[in-house]
Write a protein that binds this DNA or RNA. Structure first.
Length: 299
DNA sequence: ACAATATCCTGCGAGC
DNA sequence: TGCTCGCAGGATATTG
């Protein structure tokens, strides 16, 4: 499940690989992934547009496009959210007997090919593909403002690695929430970019129990969490993300954070600080991992 | 107003 | 061994 570091890895890759390229065609076999407009309309409307900017907002990938022929029109925006199992891949494929076959030997695991559902054909002969086992991924395309309002981007909280997300801002957010800190960290409309993996890692690093109520945390604890957010996320970006589930970069390669992770999916293993045994509990129907010795509940 | 629950989808692990 | 069944999981919609 791609979170901020994984999405950042994709955006960095794409910036190097597809910036300035024109989209010359689209293939798809799972129209439901395209939420707006209809898949066929997107196919017609996006053809000929040039990629001019690529950025990340929370877990969303934003690809800005312009029409060289009509420079007066507003910018277009292609929003991609990978959700659980979405992969954005840069490569070359062909469709044969309704199957997607890779044309670049050894570049990708064969098994990824059968989950490719959308391909954007670029003017340099390469392709940008979206593969998604569970088909939860989301694509929205249109004039920039339309896409922003349609996809609820303006409702997002501050991006976890944005400079505007200050300690003061984090304190304000936490103090206004009576739900537990794990849920607060994962709520995209409060803070954007953190999901299940990194919320566990952050709270372990800050020595805070995931079930602590956000508005019960004292200034010092909030400061520790805030610093853990920045530290952990920056480290994970540097390591190109976590591939413990199935994240891959645009070349199909794994990230390296998983080897250095502290608690996520380590139930029963020894805490890296050497005291407790990592425990797994359910919080809002998803698994939370923590060390009962380092992360004590205090009420 | 807010919180709990259902929804989407498919591979995988548990259980028999 | 081979089959069925139920579950995970991010964000959104729907229900309580």
């Amino acid at each position: 499940m791609p979170e901020l570091p994984e999405v950042q890895t994709i955006v960095d890759d794409l910036s190097k690989k597809i910036m300035g390229r024109k989209i010359i065609g689209v293939w798809f076999d799972a129209p439901k992934i395209i939420k707006k407009p209809k898949a066929l309309e997107l196919k017609n409307q996006i053809k000929g547009l040039k990629i001019v900017k690529i950025k990340r907002l929370g877990k969303n990938i934003l690809i800005y496009l312009t029409d060289d022929q009509q420079p007066t029109t507003n910018d277009y925006l292609l929003l991609i959210h990978q959700k659980m199992t979405g992969h954005l891949l840069y490569g070359k494929w062909q469709i044969a007997n309704r199957k997607v076959e890779s044309l670049v030997k050894g570049s990708l695991e064969e098994k990824v090919n059968k989950y490719i559902h959308i391909i954007f054909y670029l003017d340099n002969g390469w392709q940008l593909a979206l593969s998604d086992l569970r088909k939860f991924a989301k694509i929205v395309f249109g004039p920039e403002k339309e896409v922003i309002s349609l996809s609820g981007l303006e409702k997002l909280g501050p991006d976890a690695l944005d400079k505007n997300f200050t300690l003061e801002k984090f304190k304000d957010i936490a103090k206004a929430q009576k739900k537990n800190i794990k849920e607060v960290l994962m709520d995209q409309n409060l803070i954007a970019g953190i999901g299940n993996i990194y919320s566990d890692e952050i709270l372990w690093f800050a020595k805070i129990h995931p079930l602590r109520r956000a508005n019960d945390l004292n200034i010092n604890e909030l400061k520790n969490i805030y610093e853990a957010i920045k530290t952990i996320l920056k480290k994970a970006v540097k390591l190109r993300g976590t591939s413990i589930s199935d994240f891959r970069d645009t070349a199909g390669k794994s990230g390296f954070y998983a080897e250095q992770r502290y608690v996520y999916r380590k139930e029963g293993e020894k805490c890296p600080r050497g005291n407790g045994i990592i425990k797994r509990i359910k919080i809002k129907s998803r698994s939370a991992h923590y060390c009962p010795k380092c992360q004590i509940v205090r009420i």
